[in-house]
């Protein structure tokens, strides 16, 4: 398994990387950790003519708090996300999900930006990004813009990221202080990717009713999706075993559920409900 030939450039800055991307006429690709790209290149499923290495740009690394958000540089590795004190304090669900990506070695190299930009529907971060209202900072030739993650994932391995732009950082909304959160994953036993991964965040008001709820799922569908139906069903309700079970039955409503020889559509729908129910029970009962 050997990639096709390509030329290699190490970009010295974000601006240079953008310029090089532009010059490659859509034939160039950014190389960060390489853990999504290199496997595809080894199978010759993708054959970029140029790789623009941004892996060493330190300005794309790190975690900082900005008001009610945590901003994480695109090149921050899964391991750094998982173990960073700010993430553990403010976004424990992101820390938990990052700690479940791939394996120890993959987490040491794979990056949060690469993971989101690659848009593998079975990756673990897309659901977390949706549930935490992630905003993506994207730099292109015309400067920087901020895009919501909602609408970013267009299909398997397809995003709204323009060919000549760079995802530089991702910010996540810090949920209300009294909210609880979890990421529950049913990992494919071979690949470790999510057959289903449910990210749920919820908070109750002083009377015990659900006042804040965000649920998103990856793994089962073409793209990660936001479980609007479940949220609507529970918003403002007093959570009971019964209401949670009923709401969880709607977990597959908002996704285009896929199928393969390991897990059929019917089984995936079922898993969506089971894992959503388990997540909500953890948070609300």
């Amino acid at each position: 398994m050997i990639p096709n030939q390509f030329s290699y450039v190490r970009a010295e800055s974000i601006d240079e990387a953008i310029r090089l991307l532009h010059e490659s006429n859509g034939e160039g690709k950014l190389l960060a950790g390489g853990h999504s790209l290199i496997p595809l290149m080894k199978f010759r499923l993708t054959t970029p003519s140029t790789l623009i290495d941004i892996g060493h740009l330190s300005e794309l690394r790190g975690v900082r708090k900005a008001e009610n958000r945590l901003v994480i540089g695109a090149l921050t590795t899964h391991r750094e996300v998982h173990s960073h004190p700010l993430v553990q304090e403010h976004l424990p669900v992101l820390a938990k999900a990052a700690g479940q990506i791939g394996d120890l070695q993959v987490r040491n190299r794979g990056t949060i930006g690469g993971n989101l930009a690659h848009a593998d529907p079975a990756a673990d971060l897309p659901a977390v990004a949706l549930a935490l209202d992630a905003m993506l900072e994207i730099q292109g030739e015309d400067g920087a813009e901020i895009a919501s993650v909602d609408g970013f994932f267009l299909g398997p391995l397809v995003t709204a990221l323009p060919d000549t732009s760079i995802l530089t950082s991702v910010s996540f909304l810090i949920p209300p202080a009294h909210a609880k959160s979890t990421y529950l994953k049913y990992a494919h036993p071979a690949s470790g990717y999510a057959v289903v991964g449910v990210c749920a965040i919820a908070a109750k008001d002083p009377d015990g009713a659900v006042e804040f709820i965000r649920i998103a799922i990856n793994g089962v569908a073409d793209v990660a999706y936001h479980c609007v139906a479940v949220e609507q069903k529970l918003q403002g309700q007093l959570p009971t075993e019964e209401t949670i079970r009923e709401a969880a039955l709607l977990a597959a409503e908002d996704g285009e559920i896929g199928s393969d020889h390991f897990a059929s559509e019917e089984y995936r729908r079922h898993l969506c409900s089971v894992y959503t129910e388990r997540a909500l029970r953890d948070l609300l009962l």
Binding site: H35, I38, P39
Partner: peptide, 23 residues
């Protein structure tokens, strides 16, 4: 070929990584 088996694991800057998935 798929970064699963880890037989190629080495330390890079003190971290265990799969050297088949790195240029």
């Amino acid at each position: 070929d798929t970064s699963q088996c880890g037989a190629c694991t080495v330390m890079v800057n003190g971290e265990a990584v799969k050297s088949c998935t790195m240029l």
